[in-house]
Amino acid sequence: WIARINAAVRAYGLNYSTFINGLKKAGIELDRKILADMAVRDPQAFEQVVNKVKEALQV
């Protein structure tokens, strides 16, 4: 799951650890299995999560 998430978030200019930190700051409580599945099956929803994380990180 970690490898999938890392590959997906790198397309948005983040790395895995920064993304996970941003999830916590944004108050998003999705587990890694769901995030990895979302990255593959629903990229639009995953992009929305990434955008919320970037807002929380102020990137």
Rank of each mutant, 00 (worst) to 15 (best):
D31R: 08
N51L: 14
R41G: 14
L14Q: 01
Q48F: 11
K25L: 11
A8Q: 04
N6E: 15
R41V: 15
S17K: 14
N21I: 11
R41W: 13
E29D: 14
V9S: 02
T18D: 11
A11W: 04
Q58M: 08
Y12V: 04
E47S: 07
Q58R: 13
Y16I: 06
A11E: 10
V40Q: 09
G27R: 08
V59A: 13
V49N: 04
A56Y: 10
D31N: 08
A11F: 06
Y12I: 03
R4V: 15
N15M: 07
N6Y: 02
A7I: 12
Y12A: 06
R4T: 15
A45Y: 09
G22N: 04
R32P: 15
N15F: 06
K33P: 12
P43R: 05
L30C: 06
L14V: 02
W1I: 15
G27F: 08
A56D: 04
L57I: 13
A3S: 10
P43A: 05
K24S: 11
I2D: 04
K52S: 13
V59H: 12
K24N: 10
A56L: 05
F46R: 00
N6T: 15
R32N: 15
V49A: 03
A45Q: 14
K52V: 09
Q58S: 15
D37Q: 08
E47D: 07
A56H: 10
A56G: 08
K33T: 11
D42P: 01
N6S: 14
A36Y: 15
G22I: 02
G27L: 06
R4Q: 15
G22P: 00
N15L: 06
L35T: 02
A26G: 08
P43G: 02
Q58Y: 09
K54L: 09
D31F: 04
A11T: 09
L30E: 13
N6R: 09
L23F: 05
Q44R: 11
A39I: 11
A3C: 10
A11R: 08
E55T: 08
V40Y: 12
V9M: 04
D37N: 13
L14A: 01
Q44G: 09
G27A: 10
F46V: 01
A36Q: 04
F46I: 02
V53L: 04
A26T: 12
A8C: 03
Q58K: 10
V50K: 01
L35S: 01
L30V: 14
L14M: 13
R32T: 15
Q58W: 07
V53E: 00
G13D: 09
A7L: 08
I34P: 07
I5Q: 01
L57W: 06
K25W: 11
I28H: 05
V50W: 01
K52N: 08
I28P: 02
G27S: 08
V59L: 08
N51I: 14
R41K: 13
V40K: 09
L30K: 07
K24D: 14
Q48C: 05
A56E: 09
A36M: 08
L30D: 10
L57T: 09
K52P: 01
G22S: 04
R10C: 03
L23S: 03
A26M: 07
I34S: 09
G13A: 04
R41T: 15
I28R: 02
A11I: 14
K24P: 06
G27I: 04
L35V: 07
A26H: 02
L14E: 01
A26C: 02
A45W: 14
D31V: 04
K33A: 13
I34R: 10
L35Q: 02
V9N: 00
S17Q: 13
I2N: 03
V40A: 11
Y12Q: 05
V50R: 01
G27H: 14
T18H: 06
I34V: 09
V50P: 00
L30Y: 11
I28Q: 05
A36R: 03
N15H: 11
L14K: 00
K25D: 09
V40W: 11
K24H: 12
E47N: 08
V49D: 00
A45T: 11
M38A: 02
I20W: 08
A11Y: 06
R32Q: 15
E55N: 11
E47K: 06
Q48H: 13
G13I: 01
I28F: 07
N15A: 07
R32I: 15
L23K: 01
I2A: 03
K25V: 11
N6I: 05
N51F: 15
Y12S: 03
K54T: 14
R41E: 15
V50F: 02
I28K: 03
N51M: 12
K25R: 10
S17G: 08
Q44C: 04
I2H: 04
F46Q: 00
V40I: 10
L35D: 01
A45E: 14
K24V: 14
D42C: 05
N51R: 07
N51Q: 11
K52A: 12
L35C: 02
N21G: 07
F19I: 01
A56T: 10
G27M: 06
I5E: 00
T18C: 04
F46Y: 01
A45S: 10
L14Y: 05
Y16E: 03
I5A: 01
A39G: 03
R10Y: 12
L35N: 01
L30N: 07
A26Y: 03
P43V: 06
E29F: 11
K54V: 09
K25S: 10
A11G: 09
W1S: 14
A8G: 02
V9C: 03
A11L: 12
A45H: 08
E47H: 06
L57Q: 07
R32F: 15
V40G: 14
V49L: 12
L14R: 00
A36V: 11
Y16A: 11
R32D: 15
R32G: 14
D31P: 06
A8P: 00
E55A: 12
N6A: 10
A8R: 02
A39R: 01
R10D: 11
A45I: 08
N21K: 12
R4Y: 07
G22V: 02
A8H: 06
V9D: 00
L23Y: 06
K54Q: 13
Q48R: 12
V53D: 00
A7T: 12
W1H: 14
V53T: 05
I34L: 12
I5G: 00
E47I: 05
R4I: 15
Q44V: 11
V53C: 04
E55I: 13
F46D: 00
I2G: 02
V40T: 14
K24L: 12
G13P: 00
P43F: 05
